[in-house]
Simulated scan of single mutants.
Amino acid sequence: MRIAFLGTPAFAVAALDALDRAGHALVAVVAQPDRPAGRGQALREPATKVWARAHGVPVLQPEKVRDGTLAAALRALEPDALVVAAYGRILGKDLLTLAPHGAINVHGSLLPRWRGAAPIQWSVAEGERETGVTIMQMDEGLDTGDILLQRALELREDDTSETLAPRLAALGGEALVEALRLLEAGALVPVRQDPAQATLARILEKEDGRIDWAGPARRVADRLRGFTPWPGAFTTLEGRTLKVLEARPGADAEAPAGEPGEAEVVPGRGLAVACGGGTALLVTRVQLEGRPAQSALDLANGLRKKRFRLGT
């Protein structure tokens, strides 16, 4: 097939690799414009642009996608399908309908669960034990199109959104190639989504990372994993922000007496922090505002305290 590809971050590169290996003709890669990044705020190229340049594929980076200009440019390339993977923009009807096979999306969840911008993060943060990828025929709704193909993936106990994303991306690339093959053969039967089963994976905000110690330890740990690397998990200690970098629930430590957020040193292990329901979280690595990352035990030693309260 002749494919016009729309995608921006590293997640989308696996789909590009899969399309290239399968022999599809990539007529263009459409990515968001270069954006400032890092402490120096230097312009950074999207991962898909870097890939396209290395493979000799033309790149388009429009600021706007709903004024007809992008649709006209892609229509002139006569693609058989548009493939979209984490592009980060909402497409209008002119783009969704310009190719014979329409626009096909690689989405990082088992739709209709986790529609929206951050499906990988929320699936981990909400303690899912299984997720996957969906190849979807796009419509004008938010991830509401018909399902063409799905592939499931089991989450590991220690998965973060950062470790899960590459595995889902690779699985998405494989599923995409299979779906396109079946689509060409007329062997795919689109399946409508059940809106009653839908959940929203909204865009993450900084405040999502603030730890609620009143929740059970498992939930706190799941949110830490889901929000790694951003916005992370954080609390306060004596008025200063404390990032919790590594922690685990379970029987490693008994919950300290007192209200949720009470922390107590467990010699040789870390800090046991009281959570809701009488559970405890063993915190092993932290970063206090203005300091480098360190073990939780080193933090406690530096404060010369065996017990203190977090979240104040």
Rank of each mutant, 00 (worst) to 15 (best):
L142I: 13
F234R: 11
V265L: 08
P216E: 02
V286G: 04
E207I: 14
K206P: 00
L19H: 09
M136Y: 12
Q287H: 12
G261K: 11
G278H: 11
G56M: 02
R218P: 00
L77M: 11
L91P: 13
A165L: 13
A71H: 10
R269G: 06
P231M: 03
L288G: 08
L310G: 02
L242W: 14
L188H: 08
Q61T: 11
L60H: 06
A263M: 08
G268P: 08
A296M: 13
G127D: 09
L142G: 00
I211V: 15
R248H: 15
V27D: 01
E126P: 00
A37I: 02
P231W: 02
A255Y: 12
M138N: 08
A99D: 04
Q294S: 13
A272Y: 14
L142S: 07
P292Q: 04
V84C: 04
V266D: 06
E174V: 08
S161D: 03
L242V: 10
P249F: 12
R21G: 00
E264V: 10
A169M: 06
P119K: 03
Q150W: 02
D146S: 14
W122P: 03
V177C: 02
R202A: 15
A179C: 09
Q61H: 02
V265N: 01
K243C: 09
R89N: 08
E128Y: 15
L110P: 02
A198S: 15
T131C: 12
G23R: 02
D159H: 01
R192S: 14
R248T: 12
P62A: 03
T134M: 07
R113K: 13
K306D: 09
Y87C: 04
D298I: 12
W213L: 01
G132C: 09
V59F: 06
E130S: 06
E184P: 08
A187W: 14
P9V: 05
E289H: 13
A217W: 12
V189G: 05
R89E: 09
G232Y: 14
D80P: 11
L95C: 10
L82V: 11
R66M: 05
V191S: 10
L164R: 01
A300Q: 10
D80E: 13
I90L: 14
V266E: 10
F5Y: 07
G250C: 10
P256V: 03
R291A: 15
F308D: 06
P112M: 00
V191Y: 00
T160C: 00
D158E: 15
L299I: 13
A251W: 14
R202N: 08
T134H: 03
V244P: 05
I203H: 12
A175T: 09
R219E: 15
L183I: 04
Q121I: 05
D298V: 15
L148Y: 04
K306M: 07
A221Q: 13
E63R: 11
I135R: 06
E178I: 01
G239F: 10
L155D: 01
